[in-house]
């Protein structure tokens, strides 16, 4: 009987000696690391494009077409940037009427197309003319897959312009409004 008790006691002690370090590891300290004092920041020197009255099925470009707005990297970390668009809504009653943003830059009845082009980009996009559709899915602005560009560094700038393709048919006399969001994340 004495042998049984002694054996179990020794077994428990030995098992605990080898397992305690592992158990202690499970209750370690939570560490929170802020990557330096890095600040992410970008600026746009223009945010409005007052078009006035537009006709159906017509193209409108910002002026100048591809150097209309300047994106500047203001923070102290390199960034990757993205762009996303949205439906255009009737200002007076946003829920009552909208133009749906096309998923490929084309237009249709109550469907409009939006494109962007970055200065210096001459072959990007589906038509190979530098213009890229803005869709409701956040997609690469700069850098982009297949391009030779790299992340934007503090102080870097990118100039770009927009192109609007109005719907083939829309309800007239309504002031429409939309928003395009340029976003950035640390590279």
């Amino acid at each position: 009987m004495k042998a049984v008790i002694t054996s179990i006691a020794v077994a428990i002690i030995l098992a605990l000696i080898f397992s305690l370090p592992a158990l202690a590891q499970e209750s370690g300290t939570i560490t929170i690391t802020m990557t330096g004092a890095n600040e992410i920041s970008i600026s746009l020197d223009k945010t409005q494009w007052p078009l006035g009255n537009v006709a159906s099925n017509t193209e409108h470009e910002t002026s100048p077409p591809i150097e209309w707005c300047t994106l500047t990297i203001e923070g102290n970390c390199n960034v990757n940037t993205f762009i996303v668009g949205d439906d255009a809504e009737w200002v007076s009653d946003p829920g009552a009427y909208k133009w749906t943003l096309s998923s490929d830059g084309t237009n249709g009845e109550h469907i409009y197309g939006l494109w962007f082009r970055i200065s210096g980009d001459t072959t990007r996009g589906p038509l190979g003319d530098g213009y890229v559709p803005v869709t409701k899915t956040e997609s690469e602005f700069w850098p982009y897959s297949g391009g030779s560009g790299s992340s934007l560094a503090p102080g870097d700038t990118k100039q770009f312009g927009l192109r609007l393709l109005t719907p083939t048919y829309f309800v007239s006399g309504r002031q429409m409004q939309t928003q395009i969001t340029i976003s950035a994340v640390a590279a």
């Binding site: 990557t35 890095n38 945010t47 009255n53 203001e74 002031q175 409004q177």
Partner: peptide, 25 residues
Amino acid sequence: IFLPSFTLAQDVNFGVSPAEVRIND
């Protein structure tokens, strides 16, 4: 019919820090 106005409402500049947060364990 073709006279709706496409009003698209000047510069914007703000920053957030830190740019990256890592929580371990």
